[in-house]
Amino acid sequence: MPIRIEHVGRDFGPLRVLDDVSLAIEDGTFVTVLGASGCGKTTLLNMVAGLSAPSRGRILLDGKPIAGPGPDRVVVFQQPGLYPWLTLRDNVAFGLRMRSARHIEWPRVDEVIAVMGLRGFESHRPYELSGGMQQRVALARALVMQPRVLLMDEPFAALDAQTRHNMQRFLLELWEKIQATVLFITHDIDEAILLGDRVVVMGARPGRIVLEQSVPLSRPRQWEMSLEPAFIDLKRQALHILAG
């Protein structure tokens, strides 16, 4: 589903957090957002999720203004936000249960759990898992929904390099399969370029878009591509802006 962000602003009291942000995300594209801490990335994502409304401008999903959260858009938040009274498996199945308690596709649940490297921990409670494992459960809980739109807020920030690598590869494979529209926030420039069709860099105070570039790399992406001149070029541009 295409997303149109049109001249969106957001204030918290007197604080102007976002100002005149416009961004068009075509159906099935993967857009990554970079930006300094506190520049309003989460604020923007929450509005696309329908959890809060813009102070100015509007956001259209499939041509219609966003009225609230919906199961067509699934969010992976910056913190895992798991339910401590549910086992790992029930946490992953939470969205499916909300959709239809009687027809939970358990094979799909178990498949995602396996891909996330969480097999053997199905009956553990969240507080019995490490931070990185909790974040993977949150990821599994979103991906099992096979949503049309996937909103991800620094989902891999808490993971070690190896796990992050695996997760990135898995996300790309899955994305090519389900052709979701992805808005992916990160503070890792390499990650932003390697995953995205387009990279958006935000500036702070007030938050706005200062660079929007399509990534001139072919798909499927390989990790060696980070050595290509086109990659390094883009990385230099982004670094330049982020370093101020």
Partner: peptide, 18 residues
Amino acid sequence: TPPLRLSVARTLGASESQ
């Protein structure tokens, strides 16, 4: 109730009663 728990449920399509 932590707001994040509510946001998670909302974005996973839970109704108010759920």
